[in-house]
């Protein structure tokens, strides 16, 4: 019962069939790790003016961290930066809610499936890994940091 609240079908679908995976051209690249479990992600953002035209990523990790990156790609690509930031903040709020919030489906779409994960403190970091990486990469892209060569 409880397990199903964490591992929603939507999460398992994204995990098994991730959207937008693989590294593509970008304006900034970051590498984030979750030191407690070894999950890692390399993530690039591509901006066209104010519009986020791509978020590409590669990494290894659990179903939660992988599915979360896939959902992020779905949700944020094509959005204007301001809106993308609002979505990121809404997701952060949901994940920090300790199971108290359900999430606004209008804003978060598939990402509301992660509401159940917010009850498991050890897994919240997994869900947030790609979102924190995205935030960092976007800040760097805006600051004009040079993109690293692809590995």
């Amino acid at each position: 019962m409880k397990l199903d609240s964490m591992y929603q079908d939507i999460i398992l679908d994204h995990y098994k069939h991730p959207h937008g995976r693989g590294l593509r051209d970008g304006d900034a690249e970051v590498h984030h790790v979750n030191p407690t479990c070894g999950d890692e992600i390399t993530l690039r953002v591509k901006l066209d003016g104010n519009v986020l035209t791509d978020v590409s990523y590669e990494g290894q990790g659990c179903s939660i961290s992988q599915a979360s990156a896939s959902v992020l790609n779905d949700l944020l690509v094509g959005k204007e930066l301001g809106e993308a930031q609002q979505i990121q903040e809404a997701f952060l709020e949901l994940m920090q809610s300790k199971g108290q919030l359900e999430g606004d489906e209008e804003v978060l779409e598939d990402a509301i499936a992660f509401a159940g994960v917010s009850k498991y403190p050890a897994r919240v970091k997994c869900a947030l890994l790609s979102w924190m990486a995205w935030k960092d990469a976007t800040a760097q892209a805006l600051a004009g940091a040079p993109v690293k060569e692809s590995a």
Binding site: L3, M6, C37, G61, C62, S63, I64, R123
Partner: peptide, 8 residues
């Protein structure tokens, strides 16, 4: 992933 193994 071991995280998922441990959770289940």
């Amino acid at each position: 992933h071991p995280h998922d193994v441990g959770q289940v």
